[in-house]
Design a protein around this nucleic acid. Sequence first.
DNA 1: GAAACTTCTTCCACTTAAAAGCAAAAGTGG
DNA 2: CCACTTTTGCTTTTAAGTGGAAGAAGTTTC
Lengths: 396, 396
Amino acid sequence: MRVTTRPQNAHQTRLLELLRDGGPRSRAELGDLVHMSRSKVAVELDRLAELGLIQNAGLAASRGGRRSGIVSLSPSLRFVGIDIGATSIAVAVTDGELRVLGKLQEPCDVRQGPDAVLGLALTLVAKLRDQGLLPQIHGVGLGVPGPVSFREGVPVVPPIMPGWDRYPVREALGRELGCPVQVDNDVNIMAVGEQHAGSARSVDDFLFIKIGTGIGCGIVVDGSVYRGASGSAGDIGHIRVAASGPTCACGNVGCLEAFFSGAALKRHATSAARSGQSPYLAARLAEAGKVRVEDVAQAMMAGDAAAMRLVRAGGERVGQVLASLVSFFNPGLIVLGGSVPSLLGHPLLAEIRSVVYRQSLPLATGNLPIVLSELSDSAGVIGATRGISDHVFSAP
Amino acid sequence: MRVTTRPQNAHQTRLLELLRDGGPRSRAELGDLVHMSRSKVAVELDRLAELGLIQNAGLAASRGGRRSGIVSLSPSLRFVGIDIGATSIAVAVTDGELRVLGKLQEPCDVRQGPDAVLGLALTLVAKLRDQGLLPQIHGVGLGVPGPVSFREGVPVVPPIMPGWDRYPVREALGRELGCPVQVDNDVNIMAVGEQHAGSARSVDDFLFIKIGTGIGCGIVVDGSVYRGASGSAGDIGHIRVAASGPTCACGNVGCLEAFFSGAALKRHATSAARSGQSPYLAARLAEAGKVRVEDVAQAMMAGDAAAMRLVRAGGERVGQVLASLVSFFNPGLIVLGGSVPSLLGHPLLAEIRSVVYRQSLPLATGNLPIVLSELSDSAGVIGATRGISDHVFSAP
DNA sequence: GAAACTTCTTCCACTTAAAAGCAAAAGTGG
DNA sequence: CCACTTTTGCTTTTAAGTGGAAGAAGTTTC
């Protein structure tokens, strides 16, 4: 049963957004917030109730007179967020207020191609449905690790996603699940997640830096994601930071991503283990046959000098690029997310901060917080549902 | 006599903008363009005529029936654009359609402070008034070479403008001239100028790079200027492009501006002349006692290898920074303006293009024109009038 | 040169959206 | 139980805008 209940005008959109972001509210309060006459609010709320999007939910505490009726989003509203990373996939279900009701996460190589990966996504959705979490689906948001034509809902020449180029992701998923689907870049949806429920609440212009397998950046201008002329804005992993260096997957040399990212860090850590620079990492390598980012974090905590050097050097590279971006973009906030910052934490943050604050002009850095993601690995799925809910709550 | 005739609603704004950007039009055509019923268009046009902002201007050619009445912006509308650069000032008068009716330009050191510089600006305005070009002033747009709090109309900690910090420029000029005044960064107004009447017509997301005494960048997102969280967005002159190098005015080393800008180029050219690397430039130095950017351009034309090397090296530095910005921002167009590109022209452009196209990803560069400014030294004043006309044509 | 057809403008009745006002209902505190 | 508040549904008023009719002004056809 396809659900096609969308509001009919901007007022209704505004009311729905208030209920989504602020939770249930009294009718009187809503009237004050949207600057509409109470009669009008009542009319619009009635229509939304008819559409099944909201419902009455008891009475508010008295403000000295008659108690006001509380309205809330319909408790049966469900959004699905799917975050496809380079090496993992996460699927979450939220209610109308975008609270996560259930979440499944699995390793998954995006290079298996769209059929296999989207098939796995559908399997995970089915599992959540079996748990009784999905009486119906009002919308699905999906992030993929590469550039996307947002309008068409298809990936475009994604470097690390062979077989996905122009694959009709939105159409395929929409047909399969019978609901609106929105496809975006994975970094963009993480930025939206932080904006909705994380470190970037109430900031209109900010950058979200994801350091995972690769490096990417979500750009939020005036409260909404900036995608650029061809949908590839924020692709900072391939900014050149040195005249020479390892050859990157993109064919150039000196790319930021080749110096510091999950993949690069593992490589550097492995060679530090092999060369004997780091006894701690060498032990780990001997134990498990490989070195993970977690191992570098623990080595650092244990006081391993080589691990500390790796993190410092990487933080400096990232800091240099961020300093440039700060001069150019003058953001009001920078949020660091993805697996690497979430594992390495404050030592990495400190190094990045020190470089940015030193290299950019005081006017741009004077009031520039640089913080870690608050949502860590939920940012993507939450942002994805936020994106599709914006769509579903807007008038056609 | 203060003129306070602004439209009363968004429809009127839209009509005024159409008349400004498309010239006089028939009433019927306007009706089609704004998607309003003809009756409504007639009502709004009547009100605008009452306000003195538009007037009837004869009849259009017949489209097969009764001839439609043409309306045009009032021919007595006047906007003033003032472009204060680091070392020069330009003042222009335009009519309502932003055609330049008269322009005056003078050398002027911004470091003389606001009283002297704004005094000179007022003198130039008075001269234009004496020429009969200014029956009245409906608005003034002004650009200054430093960061500006757009909302307040004051410069904020501008590095090269001692004495201007938080000087109430908008208030002072508004009092003096009795009309609305808008204060912005000089690079931003040039970007707006190119967008209105130059290379960037009909492009919504682009970068305008100014290389003059310093280097700056105007950022246009979705058709309007992006200023950043504290008004300093686009300050790319102090992006670090090398680990070492000359100390910049900002206190750091390795700034782009210290490697390539009008000032840096003159310095490098002078030393090339002194060291005997360039006989051509040495001759000029001997003649005039100094080397100008024009001399470098001519040396290059004359086949002087040292001059060519200077331009190549500079182009490469700028290209490297632009390549980073292209990866990050994915613009639909880059426009190069300011005195240096306008003098050095295509050889510089070619070098910059080659670096950008080589270093950025194909998706971002695939459809990315990099072009020279079409307006050269008028971009600033035209953009300034465009900015203030947007304000004057909007409802209060 | 008159008739037939187009197109443009103005006027006016009609629809619709939204605000404003009113009175009943529901609640509080003394 | 009563005076006072607050909420809410209902009605009235106001404003904005649409669409059609009719007349004005041109063009084309015969």
